[in-house]
Write a protein that binds this DNA or RNA. Sequence first.
DNA 1: TCGCGCACTTGATCTGGGTCAAAGAATTTT
DNA 2: AAAATTCTTTGACCCAGATCAAGTGCGCGA
Lengths: 248, 248
Amino acid sequence: MLNEKTVSHSVECGDCPIRHRAVCARCESDELERLEEIKYYRSFEAGQTVIWSGDRMDFVGSVVSGIATLTQTMEDGRTQMVGLLLPSDFVGRPGRDGSAYDVVATTDLVMCCFRKKPFEAMMERTPHIAHRLLEMTLDELDAAREWMLVLGRKTAREKIASLLTIIARRDASLNLRTPKGAMVFDLPLTREAMADYLGLTLETVSRQISALKRDGVISLQGKRHVTVPDFSRLLEEAGDDSDGGLLA
Amino acid sequence: MLNEKTVSHSVECGDCPIRHRAVCARCESDELERLEEIKYYRSFEAGQTVIWSGDRMDFVGSVVSGIATLTQTMEDGRTQMVGLLLPSDFVGRPGRDGSAYDVVATTDLVMCCFRKKPFEAMMERTPHIAHRLLEMTLDELDAAREWMLVLGRKTAREKIASLLTIIARRDASLNLRTPKGAMVFDLPLTREAMADYLGLTLETVSRQISALKRDGVISLQGKRHVTVPDFSRLLEEAGDDSDGGLLA
DNA sequence: TCGCGCACTTGATCTGGGTCAAAGAATTTT
DNA sequence: AAAATTCTTTGACCCAGATCAAGTGCGCGA
């Protein structure tokens, strides 16, 4: 249900998710026109930094394709990923000047941006946009809090399983399902990036992935291509009984 | 007169923080009137549960006095606190039916509530409210992500120092400062609640507090009353160089 | 085709924080 | 005032995951 609302509709709408995510839900054509006028695209290569923490950020936008990460870094170099931006995710905080995090492209990345000033002006005139952004921000808040449970209380194995669960779900609608219902997807992150997301070291990530493979919870083709023969088994490993409405 | 965005203003406004936090910033008197009509108060005793995760939640509101916590619990009983609600903090998600978390009063608690339906109707009519809520939600999101760094990458000692930092800051305006600039405050949480917030056990919390005391970073009068002789020292211990603009 | 670099795996060892256990201190109940 | 309950501290030991250290395997440019 989440999927049909976002993905399929945004495809109908065109190639730019912001239309749907921020506006389309209840859009009128003149609003779309106005957004169209202040819209532009930016491309980044894998590994490139979109914006550094603390830098002035004069745009908001959303991911069209590729993957970006939000990370925080301590002075001594310890880093924690605080968000994973997949296609259609929104970036930027209306009403704030600077970025609170480093935003880095982990794959080649295309973003659809709006200069912040005109976007905010439009928000003033168009209440639907503020409502849509509020809804999206509440979603992100839920996700962040969910992740606090993962970081604070789950074991390394559960953390890995939780991450795989999220990745599998996030683009479930795009993924192939084998006849028997197995799920197949590619890991969009290096072991190190996974470690930064999970509050682990890359060695522990590697070991736990090996363990899940050994125990038949997943199988790997190459380093990144994952097959999950039984998704509910993976959910169990994640310590999470709910299936999020994905299975039915 | 109802246009200043300060703490003292919310006091001028009356005894109910929601006025300020959600509306007062740019309110007009008829909006206040309408809010007044759908407003009511609820009181809870220390330890009482305000609402269980998953339960239908037909109100939004804010804390007037006392402290509440948001927690998530796994089936096996592991719990993680995902939010700490202090006076003036907002609770509830416009547009959502159920609570995502257990909300528990850790002290005697008074909340100012609005039935959700009329509140949402008012949001539709009054764009300022949606803007204010968006701003507040973005603040909460920042806080949650900041906490992800604490949970994922900080040591037990740093975690304790980080929590003390937050508590000291949160009500800095209300706190006494001794002539020499020391900060004094009461811990509003048990050791167990602190552990749940920090992803630790209560034993580790106790040990690290003892260690900070031994090392002169803090001193305790009784179990709960804390004196911080040098706040920048505490910030250092938290692994956080910024002073958040508090010292000047 | 070689060799270099990067992402990943695996092993050996160490340690921070968890677990289990006992006992103080502060409050409330009887 | 004694007893019970709840919160906290402290000690002894253990283990999950970190750290340190080799390797493996694959892609890519020369």
